[in-house]
Write a protein that binds this DNA or RNA. Structure first.
Lengths: 151, 151
DNA sequence: GTTTTATATATAGCTACCTATATAATGCAG
DNA sequence: CTGCATTATATAGGTAGCTATATATAAAAC
């Protein structure tokens, strides 16, 4: 009876996420990227954010997590931080040429990983999965914001 | 064009997994559990495994990850390890009374978390989500086993 | 009965998250 | 123009996973 706590969507999603992460990690590593880099690459590449805070909000992770992520990416030569002339607390973050050059390939690898993972899914099923996930995420965002569940 | 790499199932699943983990963590912590404990509790509680290797296989994580998990659970008084009399390399792992006593409540909390997260889902939609996730996981398991994708 | 191979666990070191707290610069009140 | 609140970043320490490698015991080969 308590066994099927492992058949709940929550547990299945965590397993799927680990599977995806392992696959993506394995494929991105040879080109010098990690699975957490992508939101940063996209945000910087499209000018959607250029501060640590902005990147954290874009990636929907905590500021402290982004700080460490950026430390690793700077160490690995993917980004660069220059002091913001208009705000002494802040740095302006930008992609290095190396990161920019390798980005399209990284995106392609991720798209391919998704195609591989969705093998056997009809277009309709893939679309439904995305829809259900988006609704789930919206619910979870609401719940984490106010941990008192229900309504 | 590369922005929607963040709208792929892979990325959405990772966001959903983090949301679930944060929610479950917050609710389990007050009763002394963590989100990774559940497979161990279930496996031990139902006699599905009693060695580290067996637990790792059951939980579908690596042996080294399970070793650390068990270290933390032992430290926190949730499990106990006694040397296996019939195999000098191995320990027999069992739940403490404290863990056993709190387990049903933990399962209930997780079931409730799933109900909360699936608010607005019809039964049919919830079932479809589970089905799609199971197929996704099967694909990913296959892919990780042989990283040479497609066919 | 040794020697080899396989298995069980342990350990080192990494990513990517988290919470909580400290520090420094900004901006606004007074 | 000073002092307080706010904001941006940094740091400490934790969980849960990973890979890779070491060690000890067991089992199989010879």
């Amino acid at each position: 009876m308590d066994e099927d706590v492992l058949s709940t969507p929550g547990h299945l999603i965590s397993q799927a996420a680990r599977g995806f992460a392992r696959l993506s990690e394995a494929r991105l590593k040879p080109m010098g990227f990690g699975v957490g880099h992508l939101p940063v690459l996209v945000a910087l590449g499209e000018g959607r954010a250029d501060s640590q805070r902005g990147l954290a909000r874009f990636a929907k992770i905590e500021q402290s997590s982004m700080a460490q992520m950026l430390n690793r990416m700077e160490r690995d030569g993917l980004i660069r931080r220059v002091p913001d002339p208009s705000d002494g607390r802040s740095s302006l973050i930008s992609l290095t040429d190396a990161a920019l050059a390798r980005m399209p390939e990284a995106c392609e690898v991720l798209f391919q990983g998704n195609r591989d993972a969705l093998a056997g899914f009809s277009d309709q099923e893939a679309a439904q999965l995305v829809d259900l996930l988006n609704r789930l995420i919206a619910n979870l965002d609401r719940l984490v914001a106010s941990p008192s569940e229900g309504e």
